[in-house]
Structure formats: structure tokens, C-alpha cells
Design a protein around this nucleic acid. Structure first.
Lengths: 103, 103
DNA sequence: CTTTTGCGTAAGTCATGACTTACTGTAAGT
DNA sequence: ACTTACAGTAAGTCATGACTTACGCAAAAG
């Protein structure tokens, strides 16, 4: 049921930007905040959300905290999406749509 | 760039419920509202959002309006998600994660 | 040991968006 | 024609959540 968290996490543009930045390479909070139009605490709060959605992971390194991409959340979301295609009921719906195109 | 709209559209639980209900079979607004804890106008507003995210389609039938699932929005979102895997930069990130597991 | 650096947390503000109850309009039924 | 059914729109309320500044705490630096 984490796909719900993933959806809300990625629905926010700032959070998406943070996530996509981390996709390039792991980064600390301070570094992330520099590439962002928002304050450092805001970034911290966003990272908290991303973490609970299993989209990122923390690696504390002494003073600093390195944030790293984690694919678990994305996998959950992908699975949720794929259920829409594999679903037999979905197929029924597609059939209706097809019928309508022919009219 | 519609994937953003799709994400916000599916981030809302009520909207997800409406969408998943339509997945079973096409339905009118009134029918949808009956299976929902919210009012009919609320459903109408949600359908508007789902429509602009290319997740549903309307088929006016005389007095009523039949709403039908549309896969375009989901396809856009899926494409967005897949870019995270195919991305070379993502691969780099995955490598780092792997290195960390070994520690 | 004091200072600085790096982050998380608290608390409060402000905008957005998810609802509600009217109201309006259009098609169907009598 | 008149009424009833179906649904979108307007307008207003209320909660949530995205931000800010201020603060506290631990690790590094001096």
C-alpha cells in the first residue's frame, strides 16, 4: 500500500526535482538546498516524505547525511500501474472504448 | 509533461477510488456518486481533474454523461517511471547503492 | 573546550484544493 | 408545456501541506 505514498510524494514539483537531482548522484542536504529555490529545512522535510515513500535512503556520514536514491518506492508504483493493464476488468473497459471508436 | 497531472490526479484517494471504479466498467456521474462517500458535485470536479490528466474520457448520452477509462495518462506516467531505470545516471546511483550494501 | 558546520525539529503563516450547498441548463418523461 | 432527472458551475468553508524563521543538537575543526 506504499504506492499511495509514492504518488503523493512525486506529486509535488519540488519533491520531484529533489528526487530527480538525487538520481544523478547521491547528495547531502546542504548540496540539495543549493540547487533548490527553497530553504534547507524545506528540503529536509521533503526528504522525510521521500524517505517514508521508500524513494530515498540516508547514509549518515559523520556530520553530514548523504541521501541516495532507492528504487523500492518506484517499484511499488510500477506494480500498481501494471495492475491496470493485466486486470481483466480493465480489458473489458478497453473493449468498450474500442467499440465506441467504431461508431 | 502530462505525467505531473497524472501524479496529482492519482495522489488523491477519492480520485483513485473513482478511477478504479471506472476501471471495472464505464459509469455515469450519478452512479459513481452512489458508490462514493462524497457528493455528486465533488465527483464531477474530480472527473474534471481526471479528464485533464487524460485518465478518463466522456461519452455524452442524451441526458447523462458516461465516463470511460482512458489509458493515455497512465502511459505517460509509465513512460516517466521507466526513464528512471533506462537512465544511465540512474544506473550510476544504483551502483553506489550496491557498493554501500557491501559495507 | 569553544566555535563552526550540517541537519533535523518546532511553531507559525499562507495558499491550495477537497468539500459543501445553492443555482443553472439541458434532455427526457408525462 | 410542465415537471423531473442528470450533471456542470459558482461561491464559500475548512483542512492540509508547503513554506518560513528560530531553535537545538551532534560531529568536526580550531
Amino acid at each position: 500500500m506504499t504506492y499511495a505514498k509514492v504518488l503523493t510524494a512525486l506529486a509535488d514539483p519540488t519533491r520531484r526535482h529533489i528526487f530527480e537531482t538525487l538520481l544523478e548522484h547521491p547528495m547531502t542536504v546542504g548540496e540539495l538546498a543549493k540547487n533548490q529555490p527553497v530553504s534547507r529545512p524545506a528540503v529536509s522535510q521533503h526528504l522525510k516524505v521521500l524517505e517514508s515513500a521508500k524513494l530515498v535512503r540516508v547514509k549518515p556520514q559523520g556530520n553530514r547525511r548523504l541521501y541516495i536514491i532507492k528504487h523500492d518506492g518506484l517499484n511499488e508504483l510500477r506494480q500498481y500501474l501494471e495492475s491496470f493493464w493485466s486486470d481483466a476488468l480493465s480489458a473489458y473497459s478497453a473493449e468498450i472504448t474500442q467499440q465506441m471508436k467504431n461508431k
